[in-house]
Nucleic acid binder design. Structure first.
Length: 213
DNA sequence: CACCAGGCAAGTA
DNA sequence: TACTTGCATGGT
């Protein structure tokens, strides 16, 4: 097989179909969700998002005016709620300062600049930054996460010690810079991890990617 | 009961 | 630079 990376994508897509990420009503909601889901199950994040929606707090100004303590109370089900409240506040300050509180205003700027800016916010690391870039701003960046690392090392396409940038380059170097493709690919890897590599180890036998080897 | 989830930063050597 | 630890809820 000439392009294993693309081949894996095709298998995953055939097996699971389009995943329709990111489940959110706005770019702002994606950004908040990206922080909430740090090392946390999406199920718990949904509870936090639901609390925010009930309070109509999923809008920049409303959330900006809210105290850190009140925000922490609402996002409690997502875990790490104190530190995440701080991180969200940091992001809001950043948006206020450079984009007048409007995340959509980020669209006018270039990808490398945006990535550096997001990474400069305390609480936003590579995965969170790239999730915002890809899923909120629709920029062609590949998101790497724990599932991605596991799948690649399990199939011996990378060592278990490969770091974030290395894995990201591996994907982006073997794929066209296509937002839709990156969107589905990352979501499919997460889907694969949940369905096959987590619960029953036996199921890894029937893993759709685990064909030749 | 233990273990883990769509990470990140801060502290230590 | 390279480990280690804290952060925390809810599902299996």
């Amino acid at each position: 097989m000439k392009n294993k990376i693309l081949n894996i994508y095709n298998r995953l897509y055939e097996r699971f179909g389009p995943q329709g990420w990111w489940p959110a009503d706005s770019a702002f909601e994606v950004a908040i969700g990206a922080i909430l889901t740090q090392n946390t199950s999406w199920q718990n994040v949904e509870k936090a998002i639901s609390n925010l929606k009930k309070k109509k707090a999923l809008a920049f100004q409303k959330m900006y005016n809210m105290s850190r303590q009140e925000l922490a109370g609402l996002i409690r089900p997502a875990g790490y709620y104190n530190i995440k409240a701080k991180r969200i506040k940091n992001l809001l300050e950043f948006l206020k300062r450079f984009y007048r509180g409007d995340i959509k205003k980020m669209l006018s700027r270039g990808l490398p600049v945006l990535r550096r800016e997001l990474l400069s916010v305390n609480g936003i690391g590579p995965e969170t930054a790239d999730s915002i870039l890809l899923y909120a701003l629709k920029k062609p960046v590949f998101v790497v996460d724990a599932y991605t690392k596991r799948v690649l090392s399990r199939h011996k396409l990378a060592g278990h010690d490969a770091d974030y940038d290395e894995l990201q380059r591996l994907f982006m170097g073997h794929l066209p810079a296509d937002t839709k493709l990156f969107n589905e690919y990352h979501a499919l890897l997460v889907r694969l991890g949940k369905d096959f590599c987590k619960k029953a180890k036996a199921k890894c036998q029937e893993c759709p990617v685990n064909d030749e080897r």
